[in-house]
């Protein structure tokens, strides 16, 4: 019974740690599959975290918080879209600027809310938590956002490979000129993909500030946006590999906490580095086949589209 409890605790904790990466990663996967490289994930997550937290506290509703976070992420993505898609600014530079902006903007907006608890809201998303048996309490930590994060890979796989919309998305990312010649609106599809990526990043950020560690602190996303970006590339744009990468990150994060708890004589800073390092190393090993990387990469990734005719 006790061992089962530990196993469940590890699985639950892993899922929770993997959730932000799963959400932001799949948002970015959709964006990149349309041929747009948005390096602003970290910034969009932070803005989502700040606005989600403020929204939840002000409105007294977590749901409102999450919705505001998604709108905030999408709004930032819209700025990126206008700059790179309509005005054809360089995607890499604009994405970096977006992250820098998001870091500063979220800190500015959230400065009054630093350290404030989620006052007046239930301690977690499920009510009556404290009266349930311990094992159920553990399971209850799987809040609806985690459930969404678990479903996202399946939904994304189904959408990308089984639906007509996914086919068009892949087509636009493969060759915007051909898609345009066939009569598809490249810019509209890319805008939708970029907005989807922004909303997912915002949601991921809000999960950080409303559930994972329910509070707002400056720069609290702590590089997860960058890891999500790296996961997308190293997963060679495949939903299954991306999901595995996110889970791996979650697992090593938990291992790191355990190691700290057991008092391993290693600097906590080194341990904190571990999830990032392990994820990157494993995925680099997976994706070292350059041919496969090229074969799966959206061929039009990062290239601006201008309808010449």
């Amino acid at each position: 019974m006790h061992e089962l409890g530990i196993a469940v605790a590890i699985v639950v904790a892993t899922l929770r740690a993997a959730t932000p990466l799963m959400l932001a990663g799949f948002g970015e996967l959709i964006t990149e599959r349309s041929g747009v490289l948005n390096l602003g994930v970290e910034g969009m997550m932070l803005v989502g975290a700040a606005f989600g937290f403020i929204g939840a506290v002000v409105s007294g509703s977590l749901l409102v918080g999450f919705i505001i976070a998604m709108i905030a992420g999408a709004a930032l993505a819209l700025v990126f879209g206008v700059l790179t898609l309509s005005l054809m600014a360089n995607q890499v530079a604009t994405g970096l600027a977006l992250t820098i902006f998001g870091v500063g903007f979220s800190a500015l907006v959230g400065v009054k809310w630093v350290g404030m608890p989620l006052a007046g809201l239930p301690g977690a998303i499920w009510p009556h938590l404290s009266t349930a048996p311990p094992l159920v309490q553990q399971m209850m930590l799987i809040d609806p956002i985690v459930v969404i994060a678990i479903l996202v890979p399946f939904a994304a796989h189904w959408f990308i490979y089984r639906t007509r919309g996914g086919l068009i998305l892949r087509a636009v990312g493969e060759s915007h000129d051909v898609a345009h010649a066939l009569g598809y609106s490249v810019l509209r599809i890319r805008y939708l993909a970029v907005l989807c990526g922004g909303a997912m990043s915002g949601l991921a950020g809000a999960y950080m500030s409303l559930s994972y560690s329910p509070m707002w602190a400056e720069n609290m996303v702590a590089g997860r946006g960058w890891i999500a970006l790296a996961l997308v590339v190293f997963s060679t744009w495949k939903p299954a590999w991306l999901a595995l990468g996110a889970l791996l990150f979650g697992l090593v994060t938990i291992a790191q906490f355990q190691a700290e708890g057991l008092g391993v004589a290693v600097s906590p800073n080194l341990l904190a580095m571990l999830p990032y390092l392990a994820t990157v190393i494993v995925l680099v090993l997976i994706s070292r086949d350059a041919t496969r990387l090229k074969l799966n990469a959206p061929a039009a990734l990062g290239r601006p589209f201008h309808a010449t005719a």
Partner: peptide, 24 residues
């Protein structure tokens, strides 16, 4: 039929044709 083929390299023949038809 375009001079430079309007086909997507990484997709299958049927997928390419589906994209060109616009039919559901």
């Amino acid at each position: 039929v375009f001079q430079h083929f309007s086909l997507f390299e990484s997709l299958t023949v049927a997928e390419n044709i589906a994209l060109g038809l616009g039919a559901r």
